[in-house]
Design a binder for these strands. Structure first.
Length: 260
DNA sequence: AATCGACCCAACCGCCTGAGT
DNA sequence: GACTCAGGCGGTTGGGTCGAT
């Protein structure tokens, strides 16, 4: 069964809002609150559907809406959050007070996507790191080690490598945006159900190693991942996800995140 | 000045989810 | 459990604007 559009009723107005309509909506909500959006237009005397009223209020009329261009700080946050969350505009908007999901979505599609693309193009055109083993297109599979569970936060990790140490990417390289990601093919990823069984996440299906100057950790599955403090059970969940996202983003894969 | 294409952004649409019955 | 409904979300659209020709 397909539900009829909420504005299908004859006589309901569509398109741009007039100043009078805006004023009517503002004064009604200031007096009575929005309560039931569906009932609101009738009560307020507007020839609009509730959905349209809600959208107009949330995206434009709400008193705390910040207008004007996005600052570079805001753009950076959007880019970072988009790396982390994907197209979850409302979640991104939650990190930017006064900005709406719609606005962020528009900015992303009109400015930031291009900006990012340019940055990636630039990065790919000037590789700083080369693999020593050019034949290897995926990270190398191996047996898991019996390394003890790690209590180190993922923020300690400054680099990662494959099992043969063919590629070593350091955090300063990541900062400088002059690296290329070693190629990773489809078989690298597997779908894993995590912890609460309500979320699915793409995880590396092969065993591989994460290391920094002091530690080297091997992961064979989501379970070994969870043994570490940046797993879902740990207090450093966000750090852990940042870490994984660095990898996911660089591999060009998308990821479905659990809520947090 | 007129035309055209690219870009921007407000608004709409359809789908999903959760609450209520 | 099945159904309905409202709210919320992300994708898409289309009208306005602006710069190039």
């Amino acid at each position: 069964m397909v539900r009829a559009p909420c504005c299908e009723k004859m006589g309901l107005k569509k398109g741009p809002w007039t100043q009078e309509e805006d004023q009517t909506l503002i004064s009604y909500i200031q007096k009575h609150g929005h309560g039931n959006w569906r009932a609101l237009p009738k009560l307020a005397g507007l020839l609009r559907c509730g959905k349209s009223c809600r959208l107009r209020w949330i995206n434009y009329l709400k008193p705390d809406i910040k207008r004007g261009n996005f600052s570079s700080e805001e753009e950076d946050i959007i880019i970072k959050m988009h790396e982390l969350l994907g197209n979850r505009w409302s979640a991104i908007a939650a990190k930017l007070p006064g900005r709406t999901d719609n606005e962020i979505k528009n900015v992303w599609h009109t400015h930031l996507k291009k900006k990012l693309l340019n940055s990636v193009t630039k990065r790919l055109s000037s590789p700083k790191i080369k693999r020593s083993d050019s034949n290897s297109s995926t990270l190398t599979q191996s047996e898991p080690t019996s390394s003890s569970p790690c209590t180190t936060s993922s923020s300690d990790f400054s680099s990662f490598s494959d099992m043969n140490n063919n590629t070593m990417i350091k955090s300063e390289d990541i900062e400088s945006e002059e690296i290329t990601m070693p190629p990773i093919d489809e078989s690298f990823w597997s779908e894993e159900t995590v912890e609460d069984e309500s979320s699915t996440i793409m995880m590396p299906s092969n065993s591989w190693t994460v290391s920094n100057d002091h530690h080297q950790y091997q992961f064979n599955s989501v379970e070994t991942f969870q043994q570490h403090s940046f797993g879902y059970n740990g207090s450093n969940f966000d750090d852990g996800m940042d870490f994984w996202y660095d990898i996911f983003i660089r591999s060009g894969e998308s990821i479905e995140l659990p809520d947090f």
